[in-house]
């Protein structure tokens, strides 16, 4: 339950507040949550309970994502012969960025006096540490194509999760600034991994597209595909609530403003729900 968990996660405040500008922010969130508690305990609470909409929840979920990505690249770089020599530098850069993002988010939590969750022991087979469970992601650390497919999905998931969480950070402009910048770096990562896959013969664009070849997963792992690209085919965008933009009125052959059908959905990267994101992340912990 998010309100309680937020309060639980706020560690006892050290005496020195001056060195921790973010502390006040998360405390403020905590206070707001506390103030809202009587109302929050009403009928609407269960529906809201799995919605991560506080700064603390946003940062911890993003930290889990970044740690997962860092672990994938760390293990891939350590797996003999998995990554071709010509691409080693690319994945060292990806790993470095994820490591920097982990450090930043960790520091943000520490500066806020919040508890930093322990890093889980990630299992990229999808067996969640239980050897009798079925393997959901075969060969990701032994076959480069299988590795790239997973890397692409996790990078796409990352882009979408930052998109979802960015504006949940409402009280800290510096944190929002950083999240928006990291959001863009994740997109560059995804575009690069997609380039590598296309170079190896996969029909895939640098941006999620209706024309991309599907990454086939067993049913138990389908939530990862949903989290990575589910809903990307959405051709409807709203400028205001409930008011779809009438693209058909102004994307016209007559005006040389017509575009291919797939371009419309390609032009917008979609967010996802934090629930779906968490379900996908949980496949690896």
């Amino acid at each position: 339950m998010k309100l309680i968990s937020l309060l639980d996660h706020l560690a006892a405040a050290p005496a020195d507040q001056s060195a921790a500008p973010r502390r006040a922010v998360l405390r403020q969130v905590g206070s707001a949550a506390l103030a809202a508690l009587p109302l929050g305990l009403g009928a609407s609470l269960p529906a809201a309970a799995d919605t991560k909409d506080t700064s603390y929840d946003a940062v911890t979920q993003l930290l889990l994502l970044e740690r997962l990505q860092r672990a994938l690249y760390t293990r891939a770089l350590a797996a003999p012969g998995l990554i071709p020599l010509t691409q080693l530098a690319d994945f060292q850069r990806l790993r470095l960025h994820q490591d920097q993002h982990v450090a930043f988010l960790t520091e943000a939590l520490q500066a806020a006096g919040a508890i930093v969750p322990t890093e889980p022991a990630f299992d990229f087979s999808g067996r969640r540490g239980v050897v009798t469970n079925p393997v959901l992601f075969p060969n990701v650390l032994s076959n480069f194509d299988d590795f790239l497919a997973l890397a692409q999905q996790l990078e796409d998931l990352g882009v979408r999760l930052y998109k979802t969480q960015a504006f949940n950070i409402t009280n800290d402009s510096q944190l929002l600034k950083a999240v928006l910048r990291i959001h863009a770096v994740e997109a560059q990562h995804s575009a690069h991994v997609r380039s590598l896959r296309r170079g190896r013969g996969v029909a895939v664009k640098n941006w999620p597209s209706d024309t991309d070849a599907a990454i086939v997963r067993p049913a138990a792992a389908q939530v990862l595909t949903t989290a990575a690209t589910g809903g990307e085919e959405n051709p409807i965008q709203n400028l205001k609530a409930g008011m779809p933009i009438p693209f058909a009125n102004f994307l016209l052959i007559r005006d040389n403003t017509a575009v291919r059908d797939s371009a419309l959905s390609e032009a917008f990267d979609e967010p996802l729900t934090t629930t779906v994101a968490q379900a996908a992340l949980n496949l690896f912990v």
């Binding site: 928006l180 997109a187 032009a267 990267d269």
Partner: peptide
């Protein structure tokens, strides 16, 4: 949100 959705497509363009 619309501008946010466009921002990462631009980042993808740049990397591409």
């Amino acid at each position: 949100t619309l501008l946010l959705k466009m921002s990462t497509v631009h980042a993808r363009h740049a990397a591409t």
